[in-house]
């Protein structure tokens, strides 16, 4: 691997590390989900600056070019990251679904309550629009 490429990779991984670190600091990314990104940047950085380590790993797996070993490592990590996000997404889906159902049931009870109050002669202020938006946030056009 040429020194030039080594330097480029070192700079990029270090920059990515600190960039994500800053995002965690400002709460844009939850630390829990950033850990695996940190690990990716760290491993690539170390392997990049320790050519003997990289060459031995490449030898061990039968990878001819050390740079391909680096690519393989990066790819493997990306797969792990994607996998973990698929799990997160599944859980979020389940939770959103249940929240949606709960809100619907609650809305129903509120409606019944409002009606009962009105029948009892108690004035209830109702929201002007109750139409739900199937894709929240998408309706807004500037």
């Amino acid at each position: 691997m040429s020194p030039r490429l080594q330097i480029i990779i070192a700079i990029v991984t270090a920059a990515a590390f600190f960039y994500i670190g800053d995002k965690v600091r400002t709460r844009v990314i939850e630390l829990k989900y950033a850990l695996v990104w940190f690990l990716l940047a760290l491993v690539l950085f170390i392997m990049d600056l320790a050519p003997t380590l990289l060459e031995r790993a490449a030898d061990l797996l039968g990878v001819t070019l050390p740079i391909n070993m680096l690519t393989l490592l990066g790819f493997g990590f990306v797969l792990i990251i994607l996998y973990s996000f698929t799990i997160v997404l599944t859980n979020e889906n389940r939770r959103t679904k249940r929240l949606t159902q709960e809100i619907a049931l609650l809305n129903k009870r509120i409606g019944q309550l409002e009606n009962a109050l009105e029948e009892a002669g108690i004035e209830v202020e109702k929201p002007v629009s109750e139409t739900a938006d199937p894709r929240p946030g998408h309706k807004i056009k500037v």
């Binding site: 619907a104 739900a132 894709r135």
Partner: peptide
């Protein structure tokens, strides 16, 4: 007697809301 899901959730989620009810 109607329950309105606030977000489109699919037939399965709709029916499940019924079972929850």
């Amino acid at each position: 007697n109607c329950i309105n899901l606030p977000i489109r959730s699919g037939i399965g989620a709709a029916v499940q809301a019924g079972y929850l009810y």
